[in-house]
């Protein structure tokens, strides 16, 4: 099977605090992979290292068979940070244009991608407003649009749906599923919303820097003999302590 991300014995500490401890993980192409776990578990640290924004203390990370960090590969990775990093003095359109111009895209492609991404997150009519006038949810949506701007093969979304209303959340998830099914994209999502975890093909439960358990949502539910995901989460945590 073609894998798009291979994480091998990755550890990371900040000072004395061990944030990730010998993580092993293979993510296959064309999957939606969910990292779920409580706040502070190390999810953000892990996805940042996959993007190459941080380097592991030990172990290696390969993306599309290339060792990270690798600048060329960033063309193929769309990243949405947990906290919105936007230029608030600029309009939504200017933010999109700026990020688009950091990638290898020509003028026509930039135009197409901007209108596609803005439309996807329902921001088309607000694009000419300054970002500082945006609500929290609008900023989240703009961040998601920016992650999609260069049409990357891999999408890494850190808590993408926080602060987004249920209706839009559903439409975003439908789009993520479409991107996976029709365009074969690999998508990594971190979340602590359990019904989102159930939409993933695979989930890994992260807690205190280790992966407690992993598998398809059905496998996990069967394994813990429960029928909803909240309980999987609770039982997996309990087993460890």
């Amino acid at each position: 099977m073609n894998y798009s991300i291979a994480i091998n014995q990755v550890s990371k500490s900040f000072g004395k605090k061990v944030v990730l401890n010998q993580i092993d993980l293979i993510i296959e192409e064309g999957q939606i992979y969910g990292f779920i776990g409580p706040s502070g578990a190390g999810k953000t640290t892990l996805v940042k290292m996959i993007v190459g924004m941080d380097t592991p203390d030990a172990g290696t990370i390969h993306v599309l068979n290339e060792k990270m960090p690798n600048l060329e590969l960033l063309q193929e990775i769309g990243y949405m940070a947990q906290s919105d990093a936007l230029y608030s003095e600029l309009t939504g359109m200017e933010n999109l244009k700026f990020f688009a111009s950091l990638y290898k895209l020509n003028k026509v492609e930039i135009k197409e991608r901007i209108s596609y991404a803005a439309n996807l997150v329902h921001l088309t009519t607000e694009l000419n407003q300054r970002v500082k006038a945006y609500s929290g949810g609008m900023k989240r949506r703009l961040s998601l649009a920016i992650a999609l701007i260069q049409n990357p093969k891999i999408l890494i979304l850190d808590e993408p749906t926080v602060g987004i209303d249920p209706e839009l959340r559903l439409s975003i998830w439908n789009e993520l599923l479409r991107l996976k099914n029709e365009e074969g994209k690999t998508i990594i999502v971190t979340t602590h919303v359990m019904d989102e975890a159930e939409r993933c093909d695979f989930v890994a439960m992260v807690r205190d820097g280790v992966i407690l358990t992993r598998g398809t949502p059905e496998e996990l539910k069967a394994h813990y003999q429960v029928d909803n995901f909240d309980e999987v989460f609770l039982k997996a945590g309990r087993k460890d302590s």
Partner: peptide, 9 residues
């Protein structure tokens, strides 16, 4: 945004 830039090429 500086950190965010680091996720671009």
């Amino acid at each position: 945004t500086l950190e965010r830039l680091m996720s671009t090429p």
